[in-house]
Amino acid sequence: MKIEIDEISKAFGTTAALTPVSLSIPSGALVALLGPSGSGKTTLLRILGGLEFPTSGRVLFDGQDATGLTVQQRRAGFVFQSYALFRHMTVFENIAYGLRARPRAVRPPKAEITRRVTKLLELIQLPEIGARYPSQLSGGQRQRVALARALAIEPRMLLLDEPFGALDAKVRKELRQGLRDIHDETGLTTVFVTHDQEEAMELADLVVVMSGSQTGGRIEQIGKPADIRARPASDFVRSFIAA
């Protein structure tokens, strides 16, 4: 699904989080929102997911105005920074949650839910852990379960907030490839937020470099990793990708 961000701004009370930003994300792309904290990248992601509403501007999905869609109507698979797994449910129940939450008319039958959850557990290469609770998993396993839970709702796009932030360096590398594989397999338009330029450059097809300022976060440069490396559009980008 193609995502367009049209002059979106956001303020929390008197604090500006985003100056009007525009961005067009082609269908099926893997995009990184890269920037330091305070650059509004998470805010932008949450606006796409319907968890925040913009102060002004529009969001378009496949050319249709989606600004007013509720979080449920967006059908965005969202992976939260600390994964936000339901701690009182097993891994299986976590992944099945979105399917079971559907209205009766479109809810798959029980056997179908089991089949799909099993398939997702295989996709994330953790077929054995359905009966465990989140507290019994390692950080990397939790991240993959969160990803499977987001994929279970057959999302129109995948949004990830610092998906590798809480992991150690080795696991991070492995899961980067895992996300790349899942993206290539599902073909979902995927947007992830990161402050790690190496991660953004290595993983994404398209990198959006953002910076913070008094008037809110703004976009410094949009481009392929190689182009950004070769031709940084501003001093900020140059120093940020050198870091």
């Binding site: 997911g49 449920q72 967006r74 965005a76 936000a84 339901f86 979105g98 559907r102 987001a150 709702i153």
Partner: peptide
Amino acid sequence: EAALTLGA
């Protein structure tokens, strides 16, 4: 928030 994004 996670539950809401999952359609609940």
